[in-house]
Amino acid sequence: MTHQALENLNIDSFDRMPSPAEVHAALPVPDAVAETVAGGRRDLQRILTREDPRLMVVVGPCSIHDPVAGLDYAQRLKALSDEVSDTLLLVMRVYFEKPRTATGWKGFINDPRMDDSFHIEEGMRKARAFLLRIGEVGLPTATEALDPNTPQYIGDLISWTAIGARTSESQTHREMSSGLSTPVGFKNATDGDLAAAVNAILSASRPHSFLGLNDQGSAAIVRTKGNAHGHLVLRGGGGRPNYDTVSIALAESALRKAGLPENIVVDCSHANSHKNPRLQPLVLQDCAHQILRGNRSIVGMMVESFLEEGSQPIPADLATLRYGCSVTDACLGWDDTAAMLRETRALLKDHLPKRRNAS
């Protein structure tokens, strides 16, 4: 008797993906880069535990699509980081995966050639190579963890991880976060609700066991210890911002009720700026003034920024892409980014040490 096919009915093919160990072996981590990554993690943990009074700022392109422009940005950001490092810890936003509401470019790892050819193996190698270059520049990096297998390939080069508004409620991402080696920021839901993110922080702080991938590329039962450095990221929602003093107070109350540290990062983009990059400096300025007026829960900010302001659609002829301009969400331009961060440093440099002394 011939059995009817029962599985893989909608699968076109299985193409081999190199294992994490193979990709690591081809692109190993030099000692200097390892120290940059580890140092960034230590600094971020110290900010979250209030041993370091500085403000963390995750800043960079909405997504990486051009490694040349991305490296150009990183070199500028490193110089600025050295200038403001007494007050601000700058962490470069290096996002390779983009969650899509329906369709659209899924990011550099998934489609590095930006032509729907989906050479994921190529994208993973190029993403790791890019992170190594940023580490050589001397900047810690931040990314969003979307695919649960990706951290096995590039997680050793990341200092801070975000779990997005669409995935904070996902059990898979909460379990994954419990095993990540970085501090993890959980964003509130797209409608502005805080409960999913607060529950995610609690869940990720506990040990978990789940099906995952080991460094040899084999299925494995992953058993985690729990992540003690989860925190809340406010990004607005439902078309409304949530960085105002009332929203911050409500977020503090939700964290306190859950028995969690009152650590809040404010995302200056998304609904908090109505996706208008020119409003991002106003969000940052407002939060800086809240800190000056006594706020102690805001420990960081996020900014979408690139060399050129705005965004552009992906053209059929990639040669016509504007250099240094986002192909996903609109970004603040470099000059305005540098100005806002210098202004923030000037506002807070004498005040932030007082927050530590008062603890």
Rank of each mutant, 00 (worst) to 15 (best):
L260M: 07
T245M: 12
N242E: 08
I264K: 08
L250R: 15
E262A: 14
S253A: 14
E252T: 10
I248V: 14
A249Y: 05
A258Y: 08
I264Q: 00
S247Y: 12
L260W: 11
N242P: 14
Y243Q: 03
D244A: 04
P241E: 06
G239S: 07
L260C: 02
T245S: 14
G237F: 05
L255P: 02
L250G: 02
D244M: 09
D244C: 11
I248H: 02
V246S: 10
I264C: 01
N263C: 10
N242Y: 04
R235Q: 06
K257A: 12
G236N: 06
G238L: 11
N242V: 03
S253L: 09
S247C: 05
P241K: 05
A249C: 09
G239I: 02
I248S: 00
P261N: 05
R256N: 13
E252V: 10
L260S: 01
E262V: 14
R235E: 04
S253C: 06
R256A: 14
A249G: 11
E262S: 15
Y243K: 02
A249H: 05
K257H: 09
G237M: 10
A249F: 00
N242T: 04
A249Q: 12
V266G: 01
S247T: 09
P261Q: 05
I248N: 00
D244Q: 12
A251S: 14
G237S: 08
A249P: 09
G236K: 03
K257Q: 15
D244V: 06
D244S: 07
G239P: 10
G237E: 05
A254G: 08
A251C: 10
V265W: 10
E262D: 13
E262Q: 13
P241Q: 09
E262F: 04
I264A: 00
N263M: 04
R240H: 15
L255S: 04
A251T: 07
N263P: 02
E252G: 08
V265M: 15
L260E: 00
L255T: 00
G238R: 13
G237T: 04
A258N: 02
K257F: 11
G259D: 13
R256H: 15
A258Q: 08
V265F: 14
I248M: 00
E252K: 13
G236M: 03
P261V: 01
V246M: 07
